[in-house]
Amino acid sequence: MTKPLIELCVEGIDGFLAAQDAGADRVELCASLVEGGLTPSLATIRATVKAAKIPVHVIIRPRGGDFLYSETEFETMVEDIKALREEGVAGVVIGCLTPDGRIDEARTKTLVEAARPMSVTCHRAFDMTADAGEALEALIRCGVNRVLTSGQRDTALEGIAILKSAHEQAGGRIVVMGCGALDAENIQKVRDETGLTELHFAALTTVPSGMTFRNPHVGMGGTEKDREYELTLTDRDAVRAIIAAAKS
């Protein structure tokens, strides 16, 4: 059995360093995982690439919410990708949809062309499409290298049938990378039942803030006040355990 490649979804430089130290094969670098991942700052990207001994893929997502972008938002995505070509980034992670739940092929092709020679992954915008089989063919036509998916369900376990079907449909034309609440208890089952060669997860833990002074009257950005005094970090021990399970 070929051991699967493991990609870690991380937030910021500290998350990257934890994932690299714990044995990740590759990372998807994000900001704001609470919103599913947004484009990190250029300084964060540069610090990560400088410290990297493994490939770094950067998400290109200007905001949270849906994947139906305005023209001005799309222009910023193109410019972000062009900037990253000069930064030693191995790949970018993108996703654009049409209002009726299809892959926006015109925009996807534009982003792929802007990215070369970097690798291009389509993120879980794929899971929001109306027809997984049709969406997979669209990504192949656009020249996308891989697609990240939980099988159009909340978890990979629930999406096993679609993950297996997508992998078989891909037939080596695109990599299907599975994700969705993978942990040390379930990752072998997903690996074995789908045949996937790449798996992706974020092993996160929440720890208390080091702040000793806490203002009880203010919550930033409309969040719960307690959220201001919590940090979400990549759990090195969990990463090691999940990778060991995936590769055993």
Rank of each mutant, 00 (worst) to 15 (best):
P117A: 10
A90V: 09
A83D: 14
T155F: 09
A170M: 06
L97Y: 09
Q152T: 10
T110A: 14
V78P: 13
I243L: 15
K50E: 08
I60H: 04
E168K: 12
D80K: 06
N186D: 00
R46L: 04
L231C: 10
F201L: 01
L204T: 13
T232D: 10
A203V: 02
G172W: 02
R146F: 10
E185M: 02
V78S: 11
C179F: 04
D131N: 14
I242T: 09
E113A: 09
L196W: 00
V78L: 15
R61Y: 02
R146A: 12
L68F: 11
R124M: 07
R191D: 03
K3C: 10
A83N: 13
V34T: 02
L139W: 07
I242L: 07
V27W: 03
A47R: 11
F126G: 11
G180A: 02
I243M: 13
N215H: 04
E193Y: 01
A51N: 01
I81K: 10
R141D: 13
D235W: 08
I94E: 08
I60C: 05
C96F: 07
G37L: 00
E86S: 13
A52S: 11
I187Q: 03
A156P: 05
E35K: 00
F67A: 01
A238E: 12
D226H: 14
T155C: 09
R240T: 14
L42P: 05
K82E: 13
A132C: 12
D127F: 11
S248V: 12
I45N: 02
E7K: 07
R116L: 15
M211C: 10
G101R: 06
T108C: 13
R61W: 00
E185A: 05
G133Y: 12
T194W: 03
V176C: 02
V190L: 04
P216W: 09
A115F: 15
E11P: 07
L29N: 05
A138Y: 11
L148P: 11
V34N: 03
E87L: 15
T234W: 11
S150C: 13
I162C: 06
G219T: 04
D66K: 08
D100L: 12
